[in-house]
């Protein structure tokens, strides 16, 4: 099926996210705007205005009631999904690079940049879901500065008060929020910056992508690397396709090198790899800049990719995608 091109941003995309049902797609970009779209037809439902800098990250809760965003204007904002109103704003000394809701929607975690003498910090806020949502506590429930390489990505695990993080050095670690202690780490998970971290539907494993041209699936309990997917280009994003045994990888050479080489050199395709067999099964072309972020519909019926070129492309899978069994009848657990 023809992809739907979402042309609502003027600058490169930073993160895109489906809500739990997959009918809405949130996208944020360097142009300070957050957009929300109907995923089935690409119609824009609305925007969330107010940020004064690159919006680095968004996340939405399971009820699609609250949305949270982190931006380069050093703010973390809580939005009402339905009305587009900013409900609460937290301010920090440095930019917010990553936010995530917990599985029960009661907590959010945010990572702030290490800059201007401030250390990289992880803060967790309890969200007051009563009332209209404007009554939030200014103080974080937990806050700590992880030692060593700075954190680039994070997510809540199923275990209460434990988060999983990806680091600039390529390290992947589990942190106890209460104590701020590293519970477990895998220093050599990647050889370069971890660029993305996405959880499986049941939060028992996760996939990371890295500039070292590989993506890896890890067990969330042991941080053991289960699968490795080696490509020939730096990766910016990796996502797990529910329902089918595939993972989606996106990347391409650095934006700074794009103008000096041809399109085919850039490798700006979304790559589909078989999750278990570690083989590439297909590629989807379209972007003319590196792919910065990929998200798959929770139902596994479509996926979206956001690129450095400022476009979001939503691809609904054809029938053939669901029917095709390129490796025969292999029964693979999700």
């Amino acid at each position: 099926m023809r992809p739907i091109l979402l042309q609502g941003h003027e600058r490169s995309l930073t993160q895109i996210k489906f809500n739990k049902e997959g009918d809405l797609l949130f996208s944020c970009s360097k142009d300070h705007v957050i957009n929300v779209w109907y995923s089935h037809n690409g119609e824009r439902l609305g925007t969330y205005d107010g940020n004064n800098g690159t919006v680095w990250t968004v996340d939405v809760d399971t009820e699609s009631r609250f949305m949270v965003s982190g931006a380069a204007d050093n703010t973390l904002r809580l939005w009402a999904v339905a009305t587009g109103k900013c409900l609460y704003t937290w301010e920090f000394p440095t930019a917010v690079k990553r936010v995530a809701f917990s599985a029960d929607d009661k907590q959010i975690v945010c990572i702030t940049e290490q800059r201007m003498g401030y250390q990289c910090a992880i803060r967790v806020f309890n969200i007051n879901r009563e009332g209209d949502g404007t009554d939030q506590s200014e103080e974080p429930a937990f806050m700590f500065n992880p030692i060593g390489s700075k954190v680039t990505v994070c997510a809540f695990t199923l275990t209460p008060n434990v988060i999983v993080t990806g680091h600039e050095s390529g390290k992947v670690a589990l942190f106890n929020l209460k104590s701020g202690e590293e519970i477990l780490n895998n220093e050599r998970a990647h050889m370069d910056v971890v660029t993305d971290l996405q959880l499986s539907a049941d939060r028992t494993y996760f996939i990371t992508s890295s500039k070292d041209k590989t993506a890896r699936i890890h067990d969330i309990q042991t941080l053991m690397v289960i699968k490795t997917f080696t490509t020939e280009t730096p990766l910016n994003s990796a996502a797990i396709a529910p329902g089918k045994p595939y993972i989606l990888l996106g990347g391409g050479q650095d934006a700074m090198n794009v103008t000096t080489t041809s399109l085919r050199q850039g490798k700006f395709e979304t790559r589909f790899w078989h999750k278990v067999l570690e083989e590439e099964v297909g590629r989807v072309k379209g972007h003319f800049g590196p792919i910065n972020t990929i998200a798959v519909h929770p139902g596994g019926t479509c996926y979206a990719s956001g690129g450095e070129d400022g476009f979001v492309r939503v691809h609904h899978f054809d029938d053939s995608y669901f029917r095709a069994k390129p490796y025969g009848d292999l029964e693979i657990e999700d």
Partner: peptide, 26 residues
């Protein structure tokens, strides 16, 4: 085919294990 089967079996075994653990935790 044998190699693929082995890979799939390994994966399924790991998935079953981690699902069980998850249930226990729950």
């Amino acid at each position: 085919i044998a190699l693929r089967k082995r890979l799939v079996d390994e994966w399924n075994a790991w998935r079953a294990r981690s699902k069980k653990e998850q249930l226990e935790e729950k």
